[in-house]
Write a protein that binds this DNA or RNA. Structure first.
Ligand SMILES: [Mn+2]
Ligand SMILES: [Mn+2]
Ligand SMILES: [Zn+2]
Ligand SMILES: [Zn+2]
Lengths: 151, 151
DNA sequence: GGCCCATAAGAAAATCATTCTCATTTGCAA
DNA sequence: TTGCAAATGAGAATGATTTTCTTATGGGCC
């Protein structure tokens, strides 16, 4: 069973467990999400799904994302442009670094920073419920010997 | 000279330095921003300013915020609801903790977490350009002796 | 396999923050 | 003062997302 199939099975059981129907559209969207290894927005998911079923509507994508989010099956992120982007929640918690030049999204996780956030909240008298951490960076050039001037 | 007046003077010199005009509307909006000790959105700024000049338009608030942001005079944040909120940049860098029950915004700063973010980016081969860090938390009840059951 | 009907889908209108357009006003340098 | 580029006010436009309304359908039950 492929990773994609396993994710779809998880999605389906989450829906079933909540007493929700497994429609053709949901099945298709689940497949798109399970196959995604990036952070597509609603339009991106719609485009990928529409290729398989040209009767699908964008409303259904939005509705399905809302259902899946409330089931905890996916995570929604809004980076700097404010547009909602989605990824399946079938993975350990991580945060994101966005390449400011290319827009590429790189995932990372750090126990140290997770712990530090909890501690900061605690010092302020709060229990940390969730957080948003996004790093925006520029690729470093690998250090190298300065080239000799030519000519 | 009050802190408010000093902030206004800074704002004005920033505008003048960029060759921009000091209009009545901008003067008013600068005052509202200088006096603010919270994180108002455009409508909030408009409401406060409108009380002093009922000819002001919301478009002008948005335009002015864009100008001020490009001058580095204010900072713009978009917390979970995606609405842009503003604060004057006349203060040291800090991040925010949002009380999930009351919506209250608490400012904090931590050299440790700033450094850790730089290090994480560096380990990924990136130079940190900026970041977004928001903690969402719930007020802790102060630990207390369990009350004896009454009656 | 059909039946029923609450749930879900499609299409299009509505919403809401923000930006843009354009006619009119105004800051400010000369 | 004058001239004019820059700025404003009012309202239209935009774009992501949600809602409305009518029609379609998943899936438990016979
Ligand atoms: Mn991710
Ligand atoms: Mn702040
Ligand atoms: Zn994290
Ligand atoms: Zn910070």
């Amino acid at each position: 069973m492929s990773e994609t199939d396993r994710r779809i099975a998880v999605f389906e059981s989450q829906l079933k467990g909540a007493g929700l129907r497994m429609t053709q559209q949901r099945r298709l969207i689940l497949r798109v999400l399970a196959e995604a290894d990036d952070h597509p927005d609603a339009k991106g998911i719609f485009t990928r799904a529409f290729a398989h079923d040209p009767t699908l509507s964008l409303s259904t994508v939005y509705r399905t994302m809302k259902v899946l989010e409330s089931q905890g099956a996916i995570e929604r992120h809004a980076f700097e442009d404010g547009i909602s982007r989605y990824e399946h929640a079938d993975q350990e918690h991580h945060d994101h670094l966005i390449d400011v030049d290319s827009g590429e999204v790189i995932e990372f996780s750090s126990d140290a920073i997770e712990e530090l956030q909890r501690r900061i909240a605690a010092e302020l008298g709060y229990e940390l419920v969730r957080h948003r951490l996004e790093l925006y960076g520029r690729k470093k050039q690998p250090a190298r010997k300065p080239a000799r001037k030519r000519g």
